[in-house]
Design a binder for these strands. Sequence first.
DNA 1: CCACGGATTGGCT
DNA 2: GCCAATCCGTGGA
Length: 202
Amino acid sequence: MNSHLQKLTKSFYEQDLHKVAKKLLGKIFINNSGKVLLSGRIVEVEAYDGSIDEASHSYNGKTKRNEIMFSGGGLLYVYFTYGMHFCANVVTGKVNDGNAVLIRAVEPIEGIDEMMLNRFGKKSISQKDFLNLTNGPAKFAQAFNITKAENGTDLCSNNIFIKNNSETSEEKIICTTRIGIKKSVDLPWRYYIKDNPFISRK
DNA sequence: CCACGGATTGGCT
DNA sequence: GCCAATCCGTGGA
């Protein structure tokens, strides 16, 4: 089947933040903008809310850096952090909501040789490094060639997009507090697929 | 196995 | 000047 027929549409991304976050688990993230198609199954995400969530980049309103978070569901918000890493988010809801889902981990499917080159500069890696390909937000971005150039990409009209897949059943979705933040630490807004080997942390 | 600190830039106070 | 939605290497138990 033509993958375009399965591309998630605006109406999917315009749904409620947490509904989209949970529904994204199990879906296939694709970057087909390079020579080699890269794909992976989304296995871990976190929700960030502009209104009540002090950890969200959008909490204090729109700036040059976070403006994509306010630009409507279906866009890719990519930010730069710690002086060297990029992380990718899927914007949800309507214009000015300031809501987005951070993609924290995927399970590699296609283009794995290319991912190994992007991450480690070689095509032969250890079993341990195989799990290290995409088991973290900046690892995923590096493996999939997502950088600031991809900030603002419309996932509904480009060769970077997310493909539909069967729903992940409720009992396989684990919900915990989020990782690596210092504010709003008690909000249980991290979702991941139970027992998946590419989860960033237990 | 776990804990800790360095890397390195840009955004905001 | 401070610090970040991270990652990786090191050093000790």
